[in-house]
Amino acid sequence: MKLMRKPIEVIALFDFEGNAVPIRFRYEDESQGLCVIKVDKVIKKDKDKFAGNAMIKYTCETCDDGAVKLFELRYEIDSLKWYLYKM
């Protein structure tokens, strides 16, 4: 996985318990333009409170042309922003 740190637009499901589950997201790629990626599975969910800034880290996988790709999304709770952190 490579460090990306890109702000992304996300469709997520917020369940009854208040958990946010990312379903699909898109981002602007310099070479390919707008890329849409479907989140097939959330493997791990962690909370990060570095310097008091709460973030939820999602390690997810997607299926791209038959190949499974890993990536990490981050949701910043104070700003309500999503980031594609690593891919």
Partner: peptide
């Protein structure tokens, strides 16, 4: 160190 931790969280090298 707060700024450093914050930067690291956002992926600073």
């Amino acid at each position: 160190s707060w700024q450093a931790a914050y930067d690291l969280q956002r992926g600073a090298a």
